[in-house]
């Protein structure tokens, strides 16, 4: 199995959508509850963004650690790999954040995540009249299209 989970967060840190294709270690053995899991994950990549912006070897000298930056202005991270999984991170200019966890052997997913954003999220969620911004959503068209796309990448069996 190539893909584990996907999360969508809005700019305030609310988890709008969560789906797991497989999760051999359940949430119960990790953070405890799904809510805690999502909050911890948001904290994780928020901190990693601060980290990447401060470490940036080509950035402005003496940048203040943790100073707020606009999206796309500072150096950000796009993935990290551990021994057992790889986490891909993408952020849109409006602050929507997509987190995808896959097998560590999976390559660069930046283009695929841009596709998920512009052709699946925007088409099926933002343009959906039933969608209210900032609220978690669960639309059948969105879930099927997402599933089909992940399958077309060869990440699902």
């Amino acid at each position: 199995m190539g893909v584990f989970t996907i999360y969508f967060f809005d700019r305030e840190g609310t988890c709008l959508f969560y789906h797991e294709w497989s999760r051999p270690k359940p949430v119960k053995l990790g953070a405890g509850t799904p809510g805690d899991d999502q909050k911890m994950l948001f904290g994780l990549f928020f901190q990693l963004k601060v980290f990447a912006a401060a470490m940036d070897p080509k950035g402005k000298p003496n940048a203040q650690l943790g100073a707020p930056t606009r999206i796309g202005e500072s150096c950000s991270f796009h993935s990290f790999t551990t021994d057992l999984y790889k986490l891909h991170f993408a952020e849109s200019p409006s602050g929507l954040k997509i987190v995808l966890t896959t097998d560590p052997t999976v390559g660069d997913m930046r283009e695929s995540m841009a596709y998920i954003y512009s052709y699946i999220y925007v088409e099926c969620v933002v343009k959906n009249p039933m969608y209210s911004p900032g609220q978690p959503f669960r639309f059948e068209t969105f879930t099927t299209q997402l599933n089909d796309f992940i399958q077309s990448l060869g990440l699902l069996q």
Binding site: F4, R23, D37, M40, P57, K58, F77, S79, T82, D83
Partner: peptide, 26 residues
């Protein structure tokens, strides 16, 4: 601490932590 959280949030059991972080410039 980020390393410790990443092991806790791992979808697989017995994760040892981050080996590679890929950012835009490094």
């Amino acid at each position: 601490s980020v390393n410790a959280i990443s092991t806790q949030l791992s979808p697989m059991p017995n994760c040892l932590g981050i080996e590679l972080l890929q950012a835009d410039t490094f």
